[in-house]
Amino acid sequence: MASNTTAVALPRFADKVVIVTGAGSGIGQATARRIAAEGGAVVAVDMNEAGLQKTVDSILEAGGGSARAVVCSVASEESVKALISGVLSTEGRIDSLVNMAGILRSLPTMETSLDLFQQVLNVNLIGTFLCCREALPALLESKGNIVNAASTSAQFGHPYMAAYAASKGGVFALTRTLAWEYLKQGVRVNAVAPGGIMTPMVVAQGESMGGFDMDLFTHLSRPDGVFGAPESVAAVIAMLASNDGAHMTGEIVKVDGGVHN
């Protein structure tokens, strides 16, 4: 069961252009909605065209900021270059890049094919790298910031997630590297590390894991069985991407209900 959270509308993103990848569902969708509610001009990015349209429609219906949808594969260098070029042509600037696009595949390591391992890395790690690399020139101009999607799996040994954990470990390292590399040039780079968040991706994987040794997961879940809501992570992302996070860079912020304390 997801915990209830209430987003408080603040004007922290007025006149700001924010790219949110993975905005078709889950944490990306909640983040796009939160930033728009705070006055941001959101460029919502995903491969899921129907999910993107739902995100944009809900933002326009709620009022506040604005949103438009861009269908893009973050694992494609050509597509990412076109995305950033299009944003600069249409919106004229980029103030924040929120990299939430990702995929999760849970299998015993001995059953994980090279193709599957590479697929996960291509979206979660290479996609994050490509978006960061292409957006950095614009972010240097705006003195903007990046928020990446790491995961508690990068640090705390989640079983059956070799590909996913490896990709998120890469995002962890990439985030810290970029934060130090661009510190003097005024670009902040942080990441969130969600754990136990009820998203469509997590639900889909949970339904496919009935035959696994679930005892291995007992240290990954809260004793009360409560999962966090995507909006809980979106609130942290909004803080990091806004001026409220102005003195934070190179941070990997856990949002896991205290499971990994």
Rank of each mutant, 00 (worst) to 15 (best):
L139H: 03
L139T: 10
L140R: 05
L140G: 04
S142Q: 10
S142G: 00
N145E: 06
I146P: 10
I146C: 12
I146F: 05
N148M: 03
A149D: 15
Q155S: 09
F156E: 11
F156M: 10
G157V: 12
G157Y: 08
H158A: 00
P159V: 11
P159L: 04
Y160N: 00
Y160G: 01
M161H: 13
M161N: 14
A162Y: 03
A163Q: 07
A165I: 02
A165M: 08
A166N: 07
A166L: 06
A166C: 04
S167A: 01
G169N: 13
G169P: 03
V171P: 03
V171K: 00
V171L: 06
F172G: 12
F172N: 15
A173H: 15
T175M: 06
T177C: 09
L178T: 08
E181D: 13
Y182S: 05
Y182K: 00
L183S: 11
K184P: 11
K184R: 15
Q185S: 10
G186C: 07
V187F: 04
V187E: 06
V189C: 06
V189F: 02
V189Y: 06
V189A: 05
N190D: 08
N190A: 12
A191G: 13
V192I: 01
V192C: 06
V192H: 02
V192T: 09
P194C: 05
P194M: 03
I197R: 03
M198V: 08
M198P: 06
T199A: 02
M201W: 08
V202I: 10
V202E: 11
V203G: 00
V203I: 14
Q205A: 08
Q205S: 12
S208I: 07
G210D: 01
G211S: 06
F212Y: 09
D213N: 14
D213V: 07
D215N: 08
L216D: 12
L216C: 14
L216S: 04
F217K: 14
L220Q: 12
S221K: 13
S221D: 15
R222M: 11
P223I: 15
D224H: 12
D224N: 11
